[in-house]
Design a protein around this nucleic acid. Structure first.
Lengths: 195, 195
DNA sequence: CCCAAACTTGCACTTCCGGCAAGTTTGCAC
DNA sequence: GTGCAAACTTGCCGGAAGTGCAAGTTTGGG
């Protein structure tokens, strides 16, 4: 992922990744509800206490990759000089979703379906999205001007996240249309007025 | 709230309400994080075990009233014969928000501000909203026809919930504009195309 | 080579949450 | 009203989550 890091940082990355992969693998084997932190830690070769040093709770580990992608999306937006904000956003999102769509073979869909039923996981998934939404809203706010700028920035961020969330969700239930196409359709529908 | 119920049902309602009120009161006194299930149960005069019979977790109790209002909103929609769906939805929401706005004096805002910081509560709040969104999407789906009906129904429900969530959130941070007015503004911005 | 800072780990403690079984209350039919 | 079945409450138990603390271990830099 990143380069130019000291041994210490690389080890941390590796531990995080090991925990993530162990968690996903175990969830695939026995179902997400039957995976304890102890089991994940053991499978990753660290202590339970170390797990909680890396992730605040069991759910968080499952969204490690998503959160990482989202952070990259935020970074991408930050650098895009772009004129029309909605276009910049949806463009960056399309890249991201296309990537996710491409390596969906590995575990992403499986994982999603696994976590699908559990309402507890649902809560944390959405919480993860919402955390990003806030970050995004801040980012957007610095680009929006005029009356009611902050409100409009928030609506913008919320609409955008709604598009992402809804299209992924729908695509998981109806994989006959490709994820990028689904997103394009949804994004066109929810594009907020007054941008 | 409801009428025409047997003693058993009325007692259950009363217990739920007592737990809810105890929870809110305690949270106001010592902060939401310092309230244990035991304390709530004791304050409501039941056993801890009874608490968990009524609410799946500590967070749920705080959203009891919100969930109740949302269920009423769904019911209202179900009965409205209404022509334009977005109008029906926003109309019902306005009624609801106006009511909430009116008796915001009691505890609602206080409560919201209390729970505001805690990310754990955030997750559950959004989970509550999302549960309603699904119910709503089902309700809406039965009214939407034509190509891509289900996707459009979902986008509709999601946009609507986004409007509710965003306006409440914004209003809590910026109470200078009234909640109903804020909602009207946001609803106009996020109204989805292709309805 | 050595030291300080960073990281890991075990331990203790609180809290959450669900199963189970015994006790209590409610609804209902007679 | 009496009695019974179903529903509800409660205490007890155990597994698991999550967090502070104080050792031990590893890393980076002088």
């Amino acid at each position: 992922m990143e380069e130019n890091l000291g041994l210490r940082e690389r080890k941390k990355l590796a531990t995080r990744m090991a925990l993530y992969e162990a968690a996903v693998r175990l969830a695939a084997e026995r179902g997400a509800e039957n995976v304890t932190i102890d089991a994940i830690a053991e499978a990753a070769g660290v202590s339970r206490r170390t797990f909680t040093n890396y992730f605040a709770n069991k759910e968080e580990v499952f969204y490690y990759r998503d959160a990482y992608r989202m952070r990259r999306l935020c970074a991408a937006i930050r650098q895009q000089p772009g004129s029309d904000l909605w276009t910049v956003l949806t463009g960056a999102a399309l890249e991201l979703l296309t990537e996710a769509y491409r390596d969906a073979d590995t575990s992403w869909i499986t994982q999603r379906r696994l976590l699908h039923g559990d309402p507890n996981h649902l809560a944390h998934q959405i919480a993860a999205y919402t955390a990003i939404e806030r970050e995004l809203a801040g980012e957007i706010a610095s680009r929006v001007t005029g009356p009611g700028a902050e409100l409009r920035a928030r609506v913008f961020a919320a609409s955008f996240m709604t598009a992402m969330r809804t299209s992924v969700q729908y695509w998981i239930d109806h994989p006959e249309t490709s994820l990028p196409d689904t997103f394009r359709t949804v994004a066109a529908m929810v594009a907020p007025k007054g941008s």
